[in-house]
Design a protein around this nucleic acid. Structure first.
Length: 923
RNA sequence: GCACGGUUAGCUUAGCGGUAGAGCGACUGGUUUACACCCAGUAGGUCGGGGGUUCGAUUCCCUCACCGUGCACCA
């Protein structure tokens, strides 16, 4: 074990864990269960998944070590539209199309893709070290879950919670499917407002309507004005000639119209606008659909415009209106454009038959569950957002006009009557249909999120009352990003409560989104999407560029992406290893909504791994063959202060880690581990232990106690860090455990460190903190006086109470060694002081005689600087204490603290001032 | 328009009522037998602006500015 090489250990241990079945629930203890959010089988895992996997696995490993019966339930999601798009794009590259090859063959191709992509994803999750039970892996379209999805559809239909109807829906004319409200992104874009004259029947006048979509005029069925609008009151009830269409349409009054906007005249197109639809319903107006599924004009419009694309038609219509003198003007206008989140096509309100979930009856219980904390959202702030959305929820359109997904279990007879059942045979029985009645299954499939909503219980075997369901449902915690709070969390809550009668999870931990180092969203077109495996294993810049520019939706972006990649990662990636990546994610998992992933953080995390590795090497070298047999429970005796101190520090770190996990503050977890390991254990305890081990004067018992503390604390530390850094902790633990008198197959099956063996020790902390101050002061003087590293200096002490004298006596060896001193002596009273540099630790004065080494000017400057600082501190403290209301109103402890501070400052000041005048006197 | 989040050292961020912490970066000095992916030391912050509450505010309240997000939306 020369140096730390993550690549050499990770696969080995993962295989060991998995082959030995360590990821399966133990069957003992309280249940702890996380169903992992199933990644889409569209491609490969990105940094967001890796981040989430880290959090999930940290929770799983921690709770497993704490004795919970722990299940991590893995799986993947079929992601209907997204996956179908990916496969279609590949087909296109081959010069094929799904329509040419037919539904069955196409589905076959998607399955092939799913197999490959699913494989990649599970491999990636394994490389991340995720300790989920792979024997229970599920897929939303597998043979276990698919029947459940259909079963739920049938049940909800039977209860009237699913219905079919002709509605205006959000239609994606590129994908040619309906999508739900959530899948529409509304953004402001520059557009125009066209003013069009509609001549009044009778010919003496006209109304001017304002529209952003002139092409829809061919579907107009009315012109509406506000009933109180004096300008138009006289026209209400009359008719206008609809230009180009040659139809007459009425002028109606509706208070929906805003008289202040445009001209105050609104054209009504109920089949192509959600608001107009409402107006149309109120006034009993007809619906005229003028578009085809791909947003071309259909046969309902005059021949001249048929088959034109909507934007082509717009141009033509505007031109024709102008030619007829009916165009009253064009104004620039910023409008909100709805686009599909997948295709980015402008979404068309479109009249079709679709299936819907009636959300009203489902939302109430979900709101209640969050309100009474049966479901706890962490951070709590998300509750408001959740409530706001849930309280205005609209029915959920769940049918999609695509091929990849769960085909809707509904059959139609030649009359168009619908029969809903789990399969055709059941439909015939259920509805008493004769065997020769031809039935046609609905062509559509279900929204992916419909099946995802069942994930927490369907994966555990529901609707069967399996042992897993009984044990692990409701699941303990759902770890998810805020961007799918509505898409997924809300729907799981509704479905879980409806179908199982209980909440699907007790806690939802909502984490931030991983962004790049500049806080930018990661996207393929920016070339900042990273593959966690590239960070783990390393990748040179050329192959990184090649990878990021292949298979692009917009190949013309390649050059820009390449440039960006080379700018951001000029050296590509070094291999950082999984533990470093996980540790980095933990550090970044703070309270913010965004996680800015800076590659430079990784270097620090890997350095930390190396630090742990080297510390373990040191301990093993010093303890091997020399460790006394450890008797468990024997370690409570009062030993050396340094041994008690490091145990005390460990107790505090342990507490912080446990609290951090309980609060979902993984940054605090990582911070506590890092600080203990580096700043306490390595920087101080190892250095102090060297002094003990090298000191022949010390008793064998004392040295043995330090060796034992070295190994025991290290063994505990490895367990402390294991949930975050599973691989390095396992590798080292296997070597360390035997020397610590611990046995076991794996660190992951050992208990988390117990508080009982580590308790805070105030005495030891005070003593060692004093020792640290002494050493730091000496080092500072050495550094500021430019004392060469090897040069030993003498230290004289004066002042200090009995306790300090006692500490000096006990810690003399440490002070000499860490301070590189030649001697430590008490200044005899009455003897004149040697010319020295002075520092102060509490009551104690430290004098280092500088002889000819001293740079008097530099020292005077240093003293002046310190004196200035103390003076300003003094002024602050005095002002505070002189304020009568401070003493009267502030808590006694605070006042006392301030008094103490003032006294300390005065004392230090006095010492430094006398030192300064002494130095000036000898000049 | 409504709601939420953010604004702290050059960068990424923690702290959220009692004198501002970390990691990276910068600077100075070091091949000290665990570690140069290291060690020792140093510099760097009027905690976005303004007002208020308080003995005391980075921390609580109000307000403004800027950045980001969600929901809604008038053609």
């Amino acid at each position: 074990m020369k140096s730390f090489d993550p690549g050499a250990i990770e696969r080995k241990w993962y295989r060991y864990w998995e082959e030995n079945g360590f990821f399966s629930p133990s069957g003992r203890g309280d249940p702890f269960c996380i169903t992992i959010p199933p990644p889409n089988v569209t491609g490969t895992l990105h940094m967001g998944h890796a981040f989430q996997a880290t959090i999930i696995d940290t929770l799983l490993r921690y709770h497993r070590m704490c004795g919970y019966n722990t299940l991590g339930q893995p799986g993947t999601d079929h992601a209907g539209i997204a996956t179908q798009m990916v496969v279609e794009r590949r087909l296109m590259a081959e010069g094929q199309s799904r329509h040419a090859m037919g539904r069955e063959a196409f589905i076959e191709r998607v399955w092939e893709w799913k197999e490959r992509s699913g494989q990649t994803i599970t491999t990636q999750l394994r490389r991340m070290g995720v300790s989920v039970d792979w024997s229970r892996e599920r897929f939303t379209m597998d043979e276990r879950l698919s029947p459940v999805v259909l079963d739920v559809f049938v049940r909800l239909y039977e209860e009237g919670l699913i219905y079919r109807g002709q509605r205006l829906v959000n239609w994606d004319p590129v994908l040619r499917t309906a999508i739900s409200d959530l899948e529409v992104i509304n953004e402001e874009e520059a557009g125009s407002l066209w003013l069009i004259r509609y001549p009044l029947v009778g010919g003496e006048d006209h109304l001017v309507v304002a529209t952003t979509r002139p092409e829809t005029m061919l579907g107009d069925v009315a012109v509406a004005v506000h009933p109180a609008d004096e300008r138009y009151r006289r026209f209400i009830g009359r008719s206008v000639e609809l230009p180009l269409a040659g139809r007459r349409i009425p002028v109606i009054a509706d208070s929906y119209v805003d008289p202040a906007f445009g001209t105050g005249c609104l054209k009504i197109t109920p089949a192509h606008d959600f608001n107009d639809y409402e107006v149309g319903q109120r006034h009993g107006l007809p619906l005229i659909n003028i578009f085809t599924v791909d947003a071309r004009l259909n046969d309902a419009v005059p021949e001249a415009y048929r088959a034109l694309d909507r934007y082509e038609a717009r141009k033509r219509i505007v031109a024709d209106l102008e030619a007829q003198g009916l165009l009253a003007g064009i104004q620039p206008h910023v409008q909100v454009i709805p686009r599909g989140d997948r295709s980015h096509a402008v979404v068309e309100p479109y009249l079709t038959y679709q299936w819907f979930v009636k959300t009203g009856p489902l939302a109430g219980p979900a709101i209640e569950a969050v309100r009474d904390q049966r479901i706890r959202l962490v951070p709590k702030g998300w509750e408001k957002t959740f409530f706001q959305w849930m309280e205005e929820i609209r029915d959920w359109c769940i049918s999609r006009q695509i091929w990849w997904g769960h085909r809707i279990p509904a059959w139609y007879d030649p009359e168009g009557r619908v029969y809903v059942a789990r399969n055709e045979a059941e439909a015939r029985v259920k509805y008493g249909l004769s065997a020769d009645l031809p039935l046609q299954q609905d062509e559509d499939v279900l929204d992916t999120w419909f099946s995802s909503a069942l994930w927490p219980f369907a994966t555990l075997g529901w609707p069967d009352q399996t042992p897993e369901l009984k044990t692990f449902y409701p699941t303990t915690v759902m770890v998810t990003a805020f961007d799918i709070l509505f898409f997924w969390v809300a729907r799981m809550a509704m479905m879980g409560l409806k179908l199982t009668g209980d909440v699907p999870f007790r806690t939802v931990y909502i984490h931030g989104l991983v962004r790049d180092a500049h806080g930018q969203k990661m996207s393929k077109t920016k070339g900042n999407v990273l593959d966690p495996l590239d960070i783990i294993d390393g990748r040179d810049v050329d192959s990184l560029v090649a990878k990021m520019t292949q298979g692009l939706m917009q190949p013309e972006m390649a050059e820009r992406i390449a440039k960006n990649v080379r700018r951001e990662f000029p050296q590509g990636f070094e291999a950082y290893g999984t533990d470093a990546l996980r540790f980095t994610f933990a550090v970044l998992a703070g309270s913010g909504r965004d996680i800015a992933f800076d590659i430079r953080r990784l270097a620090g995390s890997r350095a930390f791994c190396t630090k742990v590795w080297n510390a373990a090497r040191f301990v093993l070298m010093n303890v091997e063959n020399a460790a006394p047999p450890t008797v468990p429970g024997e370690t409570g005796e009062r030993g050396n202060a340094i041994d008690r101190w490091i145990r005390s520090r460990f107790a505090r770190a342990l507490d912080e880690v446990k609290r951090g996990i309980a609060d979902y503050r993984f940054d605090q977890v990582a911070q506590a581990i890092y600080e203990f390991t580096w700043s306490h254990y390595c920087d101080w305890y190892l250095e102090l232990s060297k002094v003990v081990l090298a000191d022949a004067e010390k008793s064998p018992e004392e040295r043995a106690a330090t060796r034992r503390t070295l190994i025991e604390v290290l063994e505990s530390l490895l367990r402390l860090m294991h949930p975050v850094m599973p691989f390095i902790s396992e590798e080292l633990w296997q070597a360390v455990a035997p020397l610590a008198g611990v046995s076991g197959k794996s660190i992951m099956l050992r208990p988390f460190p117990e508080e009982s063996r580590y308790c805070p020790d105030e005495d030891a902390e005070q003593e060692i903190e004093w020792l640290q101050k002494m050493v730091i002061e000496i080092r500072r003087i050495r550094a500021e006086m430019d004392v060469p590293y090897r040069k030993q200096v003498a230290l004289f002490l004066s002042g200090g109470d009995d306790r300090v004298r006692d500490w000096v006596a006990r810690n003399r060896g440490f002070i000499v060694s860490l301070g590189k001193l030649s001697s430590v002596e008490w200044l005899a009273p009455g003897v004149s002081e040697p010319e020295s540099v002075v520092a102060v630790v509490g009551d104690l004065r430290l004098l280092i005689p500088m002889e000819d080494l001293i740079d008097r000017e530099a020292e005077l400057k240093r003293l002046s600087r310190e004196i200035d600082a103390l003076n300003s501190q003094l002024a602050k403290s005095r002002a505070k204490l002189d304020n009568p209301s401070f003493a009267a109103r502030a808590p006694a402890a605070v006042v006392e603290q301030e008094r103490q501070r003032l006294a300390d400052t005065e004392r230090n000041l006095e010492k430094l001032q006398s030192q300064k005048s002494r130095l000036e006197g000898t000049a």
